[in-house]
Design a protein around this nucleic acid. Sequence first.
RNA 1: GCGGCUGUGAUCUAGCCUGGUAGGAUCGGAGCUUCCCAAGCUUCUUGCCCGGGUUCGAGUCCCGGCAGCCGCACCA
Length: 586
Amino acid sequence: MPEPVFDLEAVIKRRGFLWRSFDIYGGAAGFYDYGPLGTAMKNNIVRVWRRYFVQREGFAEIETPNIMPEEVFRASGHLDKFNDVMLECSKCHEVFRAEHVINEGYLEITEEINVGSLALEDIGDLITAKGVQCPMCKGEFRPPYEFNLMFSTTIGRNKTGYLQPETAQGIFLNFQSLYSYFRGKMPFGVAQIGKGFRNEVSPRQGVIRLREFNMAEAEVFINPEERHYKGFDKVKDTNFTLLDQHGALHYLTADEAVAEGVIRHQALAYFMALTQGFLIEIGIDEERLRFRQHEKDEMAHYARDCWDAEVLIEINKKESWIECVGIANRSCYDLEQHMKTTGADLRAFERFEEPIEQEVERLKPDLRLLGRTYRNDAPKVREYLGSLSPPFPGRITMELNGGTVEIPKEFYTIEKRVEKVSGRRYIPAVIEPSFGIDRILYAILQHSFHVGKAREGVDSESYTILKLKPEIAPFKAAVFPLFNRAGMSELAKRVYDSLVETEMQVTLDDSGSIGKRYARQDEVGTPYCITVDHQSLEDKTVTIRDRDSTEQVRIRAEKVPEIIHLLVSGGIEFEELRNPESGGSD
RNA sequence: GCGGCUGUGAUCUAGCCUGGUAGGAUCGGAGCUUCCCAAGCUUCUUGCCCGGGUUCGAGUCCCGGCAGCCGCACCA
């Protein structure tokens, strides 16, 4: 007996969901193509995502380049964090980060060495000079090598650029324009759907670890002082399965989780709730979904706190929890970094309800005296004095030309005056829900895949159904003429054409037995099949079949687009069609 | 990146040890059957991962590459 061919991977490839990229050239690890059905399904997922994370939240969606200049990633910290110098033992082939080997006691040095600032050769020399050996087996190290997780490229003639490892930076860089787009109203959110690129060492889990992947991210800018998040009340009763950073499992509502400090910010809990609702709506099995908090040493360099939505799927014959969404509190990190590097003002303004009158002290230098005394150094002294902020010390000293000088009291006066302060500036904190679209799509396929027993007389042993949610399914409906006989084909084509005029994706199939055609559609998750039969020719009715119950109801042919649309959008349930008043039979 | 195993039509596989250019099943196309849940019959399309070597001759043996799986490492 042959092995059952109806295994999910086979369906994914044969029916056109996902294909290995560059296949005729032997393929390349970490790259996948979306086939026609996969593309349709991905578009459907993205459509629902937009509804959740753009429309309903009132967020804005933007698009920024995939390639960015080096400076961006130097500021964002990705350059340091993604470029590790690695050392491999020539004997046991154990690999270490040079930074660890050099700074963690293997070397007889007192001060920390900033490994990131050393050239490759210098690190090699250092290793050789100090005779550092492999901590595991005392073997000799091979020469160090650079390990880049970002793809580098060249912009123009000789400017280094990188392919973005996340879409977030494009949003941060536009903070000023976005802030004014939202007319200075906080909080606000900005979404971007795009590609991320990471040059993984050995991506070996199919579509789970890609070198070029699809992501949908939202950056939500909030006031870091604000502990509440608007709309939290709406989600406070959401039930979570939470695995905290100490490995403790909690079953809590959003409200409880925040109150007990398991989730440390309302905004995090809010987007976790939104994420959970979204994932379940598009077909992730609730039982195979949980949130796991990152451990301290696991967190990205920019994150202060992070919860991953994880789905349980089978990879390489093993069940594992896979991160498919990360919901991070990035704090002020990114804006602060870009502000420091560029000098651009990436702050928001918080207007006080009432302007505050406060007494401020100001240091007012006597410029004439400064000039006469310090001559050419006077501007330096003036600048230094201007940089001081209250409270001012009794004696003011500064470094000048290698020595320390005291600025005599008569060189300045301290003025007190009342100022009206109408608000304050602050760097917003960022809450970021970040979705791995490819992983989500694959998890949905696994969670939707059902294998049943084939009927008597059928050659294959199993019958497979992809129980996709209608709004996610690549085809919403398929149209079949029962026979290719006078009238039926034409009517089927007319019904099909009427469906094509809607936004819905549909297919027409007149090849093979009727059972085979139902099976084809079940295999790719088409929720509804329309069949034109003998009776159709007499009274212009057709049957509509529900994928999961295989039940059939007869409806008028001209109502097909409307009814399919209602079924797909959740406007009516299939069962309701049995009631003639809903527009069903006769 | 290291070590082990593997690589046959769209899919699953037989053949490889004991060299003589490939067989099955599924899928797909066309037709018959006038078929409402992968029935049956006829017929057709598509294949030895790539390159080199050994040999009269290589899917089969050898070497290199690429890819996949397992283990180690890596996965912000």
